[in-house]
Design a protein around this nucleic acid. Sequence first.
DNA 1: TGGTTACATGGTCATTTTACCATATAGCCA
DNA 2: TGGCTATATGGTAAAATGACCATGTAACCA
Lengths: 108, 108
Amino acid sequence: MNKKMKIYEMRANILKAMAHPSRLMMIDAMSKGGEVCVCDLVDLVGSDQSTVSKHLGILKQAGLVEDRKEGQKSFYRLTRPCVMDFFGCIERVMQENLKEQQKVLAER
Amino acid sequence: MNKKMKIYEMRANILKAMAHPSRLMMIDAMSKGGEVCVCDLVDLVGSDQSTVSKHLGILKQAGLVEDRKEGQKSFYRLTRPCVMDFFGCIERVMQENLKEQQKVLAER
DNA sequence: TGGTTACATGGTCATTTTACCATATAGCCA
DNA sequence: TGGCTATATGGTAAAATGACCATGTAACCA
């Protein structure tokens, strides 16, 4: 495929890595806590420990997070906190969606 | 689930809608052309017309695009051009990823 | 009216994603 | 050393995604 397509694939990979509720929750936690251990993320999202670990692997593979081991624990943090900036825009899309649904309900 | 989880699910839906190379290509085209007809998008991405139409349905369902019919054509446009702002950050993640790979290659 | 163009939708199959269980690995401590 | 804690990884089954073909629908035109 052409050069452009490669870029879109790379972008898609990163977006796909973010596009899961549990992973977004973890990203949010990291953006607030700076650095979070796996154990705390397991408590936070409430899934199996292996599931959380795999989610983190996906985020790491995409380059969205880095990890650091200390004793028996692993700590994860965002590599680019700017990813959080996007959610302002996303929230506006969500608002607009709700407004649309309201309109549909109203015009019956 | 709790209230927070709902928000993450909504965010994930929007991100998932964006997380596909063809859809990112179409979003890019709309951000530049303002309004694009399905026929042009079919030429652009090179997939089957039905495939492109379904991709557009996904974007619309997420609230990322709106459509307008004129004659036999449908024109799509971004509802929130701010979605483009994210790619600066994404590109920085991509740059960082490449740098990492370089390092891995170099340190052999 | 009949044919053509533009788009949407239903169906199907292959691929990917996700979750959990079981298990491996590695540090810590008694 | 043996057992416990924290994390990662392999396996598997269910669900979601994506691509194409076939077909439906609506506008336009000869």
